Computed example of a mutant assay.
Amino acid sequence: MDAPPLIPDEETARRWAEEELSNPIYDIAEPTLFDRVAQAVGEFIANLFSPQLPGEFGPIAAVVAAIVVVVLIAAAFAIWGAPRAIRRARRNPPALFGESDARSAAQLRRDAHAKATSAEWDEAIVLRFRAIARGCIERGVVNTPPGATVHTFARAAAPVFPASADALETAATAFDDVRYLRRRGTAELYRQIVATDDALAAARPAIADGALA
């Protein structure tokens, strides 16, 4: 039997090379699209600071490089930083009107409805107003710093939801009446707060942020 040639001719060498390079193991070494983009950006920035550039382009190159870096940092923050901040805010919701309460707006609404079903109007009113505030916080349209009162919240939310400004003040007064003045809540007051909450949930904010002073 003839042995394979030790020195292949040109056609055989080309065929052997194609067969070898067709092996899937070589695909792993291929750079990905991300690798190519990152390499191109790195080379671009490096070229801006290259000493081979003409002297008059040195300051311009530095400015362009600084702009590119700032844009890349801003893009990274927008893509990865903001969602993490939102998740942290959701995991650690701020206190509501002097009391720690980690419940979401949906949970507060369910608990308020349960109290209303049992005709416990005082608790139902308090919980539903808290749901209003929590809903605004979750939407990012009104901030409630520590120590904010219900009336402070109502005044801050008024320019965000101008059509419900009076209803917000009425709801805040009902909260104070049953929470601090020990006045009895009623089904009518509860229905008014529910209507206010529903109106705010369906409304489009008039401004981006009603930050409390």
Rank of each mutant, 00 (worst) to 15 (best):
Met1Ile: 03
Asp2Ala: 14
Pro5Met: 12
Ile7Asn: 09
Pro8Ala: 00
Asp9Val: 12
Glu11Lys: 15
Glu11Ser: 10
Thr12Glu: 09
Thr12Asn: 03
Thr12Gly: 05
Arg15Tyr: 14
Trp16His: 12
Leu21Ile: 06
Ser22Pro: 05
Pro24Tyr: 01
Ile25Arg: 15
Tyr26Val: 05
Ile28Gly: 12
Ala29Gln: 11
Ala29Ile: 06
Thr32Met: 04
Arg36Phe: 05
Ala40Phe: 04
Val41Trp: 14
Gly42Val: 04
Gly42Cys: 00
Phe44His: 12
Phe49Val: 07
Gln52Tyr: 00
Pro54Leu: 02
Pro54Gly: 01
Gly55Val: 08
Glu56Ile: 02
Glu56Lys: 10
Ile60Phe: 10
Ala61Arg: 05
Val64Gly: 02
Ala65Asp: 12
Ala65Gln: 08
Ile67Thr: 14
Val71Glu: 06
Leu72Lys: 05
Ile73Val: 13
Phe77Tyr: 09
Ala78Gln: 13
Trp80Lys: 06
Gly81Pro: 03
Arg84Glu: 13
Arg88Ser: 06
Arg90Tyr: 02
Arg90Lys: 10
Arg90Gln: 07
Arg91Leu: 06
Pro94Glu: 04
Ala95Gly: 14
Leu96Gln: 01
Glu99Asp: 10
Ala102Ile: 11
Leu108Phe: 01
Arg109Lys: 07
Arg109Cys: 02
Ala114Gln: 13
Ser118Val: 01
Ser118Lys: 08
Phe129Gln: 05
Arg130Pro: 12
Ala131Gln: 10
Gly140Ile: 05
Val142Met: 05
Val142Ile: 04
Thr144Val: 15
His151Leu: 14
Thr152Asn: 12
Ala157Tyr: 00
Pro159Thr: 10
Pro159Lys: 02
Val160Met: 01
Pro162Ala: 01
Pro162Val: 01
Ser164Arg: 11
Asp166Gln: 11
Asp166Trp: 05
Asp166Arg: 15
Ala167Met: 04
Leu168Val: 11
Glu169Val: 02
Glu169Tyr: 02
Thr170Asn: 08
Ala172Leu: 01
Ala172Pro: 04
Thr173Pro: 04
Asp176Asn: 13
Val178Asn: 00
Ala187Gln: 15
Ala187Gly: 15
Glu188Met: 00
Glu188Lys: 13
Val194Thr: 11
Thr196Met: 09
Ala199Phe: 03
Ala199Lys: 06
Ala199Trp: 00
Leu200Asp: 01
Ala201Trp: 01
Ala202Trp: 03
Ile207Ser: 07
Ala208Tyr: 08
Asp209Ile: 15
Gly210Pro: 06
Gly210Val: 08
Ala211Asp: 11
Ala211Val: 11
Leu212Tyr: 05
Leu212Ile: 13
Leu212Arg: 04
